[in-house]
Amino acid sequence: MPARITREETAHVARLARLDLTDDELDRYAPQLAGVLDHAAQVAAVDTAATPPTAHPFPLRNVLRADVPVPSLDRQVVLAEAPAVEDGRFRVPRIIGEAP
């Protein structure tokens, strides 16, 4: 059984998901998340020495498509779904930091 997830790790995961958790919430959620992970970790107890790694539940490979263009969506329809639009583009809040 792997080590239980700590309160600090829970805070880190929350930050990655852009969840703003209070100290109380962290106290409450850290053990709950640990419980979920413990449940999933039961799989680790199974002996898989003879089982090759599985990348996908279906025994499929090379699902491919021909390189032929198909019509895209109408821009008006696309942008109608956006909260803010300018100049044919999506307008988003000020970005802090560079692209990853």
């Binding site: 300018e86 044919g88 583009r89 999506f90 307008r91 988003v92 809040p93 000020r94 970005i95 692209a99």
Partner: peptide, 20 residues
């Protein structure tokens, strides 16, 4: 992404416009 407003640079941009 194009950064708009303020200095026009990444740091201090007012907002951004995105073309996908």
């Amino acid at each position: 992404t194009s950064h708009v407003g303020d200095t026009g640079r990444i740091h201090g941009a007012g907002y951004a416009l995105v073309d996908y």
